[in-house]
């Protein structure tokens, strides 16, 4: 299912935002990695200052690659021919963790499969992938950055420069796309947001 919604109603901004929540799963991702000597996490964006401060304050080095903006730019220049994944040109088994936020909600099934393959390749065996997914397209179809606040509280900030289609999926459809990973934990929040923590099996090098 793909829906493309153009912002434009008169509804107050606050009414368009999903409710804030506390991410237990983010803690599951970050705390084991901070205990590593040189833990590496990739944040696929949207880039925002608070998240950079959060990760860079805990890890020696924080890796950022804003795939949301990359996807938009690829679509602008050539709708079909370009390979957006070339921007994920990191060495194999480089990361201990990857946070893709709700990027999958803006990819069709084929592209989600491609993203999963790239994440599998970039992660260490046993490495963790955290994703967020909406159950249905948020009001007005606005894309938000998920802002990490103290105490793993997640709030939102609208990113008006991001205009991507939505591909919200039911649980079964979403899970069927996450091939190659084992599921560590999933949580569904009242605000319609799901968080899924996946692990690259140790058997896959």
């Amino acid at each position: 299912m793909a829906t493309s919604i153009t912002p434009g109603s008169n509804a107050p901004e606050a009414d368009l935002q999903p409710e804030a929540y506390t991410s237990e799963i983010l803690q599951h991702l970050i705390e084991p990695i901070t205990r590593l000597k040189d833990g590496r996490v990739l944040d696929m964006g949207p880039v925002c200052e608070e998240n950079i401060m959060f990760f860079a304050g805990r890890l020696q080095k924080h890796y950022v690659c804003d795939m949301f903006l990359r996807l938009i730019r690829e679509q602008r220049v050539a709708r079909h021919s370009r390979n957006v994944w070339r921007h994920l040109d990191y060495p194999p088994r480089f990361f201990d963790g990857i946070h893709i936020w709700d990027f999958c909600d803006h990819l069709d099934d084929k592209k989600v499969g491609q993203l999963m393959k790239h994440c599998l390749a970039m992660l260490q065996p046993g490495g963790l992938l955290l994703m967020t997914a909406f159950e249905k397209t948020p009001p007005q179809g606005r894309i938000n950055a998920f802002i990490i606040q103290p105490g793993y509280r997640i709030s939102y900030r609208v990113q008006p420069h991001l205009n991507l289609p939505w591909h919200c999926r039911h649980n079964r459809a979403l899970m069927s796309l996450l091939t190659g990973f084992s599921i560590v934990k999933t949580l569904r929040y009242r605000n319609g947001i799901r968080e899924i923590l996946l692990k690259k099996p140790l058997s896959i090098s």
Partner: peptide, 11 residues
Amino acid sequence: DGAYIKGVIEL
């Protein structure tokens, strides 16, 4: 917000 960053940040 809106900046494009691909990189490594060390604070």
